[in-house]
Design a protein around this nucleic acid. Structure first.
Lengths: 144, 144
DNA sequence: GTTGAAAAAACAGAGGA
DNA sequence: TCCTCTGTTTTTTCAAC
């Protein structure tokens, strides 16, 4: 994991579909060398996935919320969450609440309806997202 | 946005670097047709980015936390957050707190140090992530 | 949306610093 | 060990239909 790997990861973080040939031009290194470095980063588990980011709005999801949840039936609750299409992320957390989940719904009304279905498992505190100053900032230290 | 587009998005969500040729085989459609559909999804803004997901652990970030924050100097606070490498996501939210941020640090101690640097802007409540039952579930309705 | 040819990129091997 | 060079295979692009 040297400077070159950092540069590779910085580019890939925002442009996963970039051709290796173009990436190799950007960092002034031969194609096979870059391919090998990327392969190793995958093998080492540094790269965990290549994902396509979709617009919630364009898919009809106009409301984003984080929901704090308190439950005493963790196993059942997790099974419920896995099957709930509204929930994209689920975290077990410290503090007064057990869980934090990121929820996408069509409207605030469908969020309310979703919360109602949750309430057999425990108690919720929804935090509605008003705006996103930024999201998905790169983890890689930009050494420039 | 028909069934085929949904299928394309479902595959791309988890495999952004898949060759179009392989994707076209999976959905039994010619390559140029799939290329054109993907191009339109990008143009329409349904696809917003192709990202590479990295392992925080492998990059030395062993602590994940969500931090609720209350500030009265929003503009300064956002400028601070943009420059803070620990913060990967920042959301403005409803409720008692103004902001929710996702923070990655090396240890819980470096989280504490980070929170100290925040406290000139307001008051924080950190929620440490103990585990992630799941993350990044697909938005696309899987119609199978 | 499909087919088919040309261009480009990815891959796999041999050799060198 | 890591990189470069080169030939082969695969993928992408672009034409015509």
């Amino acid at each position: 994991m040297d400077q070159i790997d950092h540069k590779i990861l910085t580019v890939l973080h925002d442009h996963a579909r970039i051709p290796i040939s173009e990436l190799s031009r950007m960092i002034a290194m031969s194609q096979p060398a870059v391919t090998e470095r990327v392969r190793k980063l995958e093998e080492q588990g540094v790269i965990t996935a290549y994902r396509t980011e979709l617009s919630p709005q364009k898919l009809g999801k106009h409301t984003t919320a984080f929901v704090l949840f308190k439950t005493s039936v963790c196993k059942d609750f997790i099974a419920f969450c896995e099957r709930a299409p509204e929930i994209v992320d689920l975290y077990r957390i410290s503090g007064e609440y057990n869980y934090l989940m990121k929820v996408l719904t069509e409207t605030t009304e469908s969020l309310a309806a979703f919360l109602d279905t949750c309430h057999v498992y425990g108690f919720s505190t929804p935090l509605i997202v008003l705006s996103k100053p930024f999201e998905n900032k790169s983890l890689v230290p930009s050494t420039e």
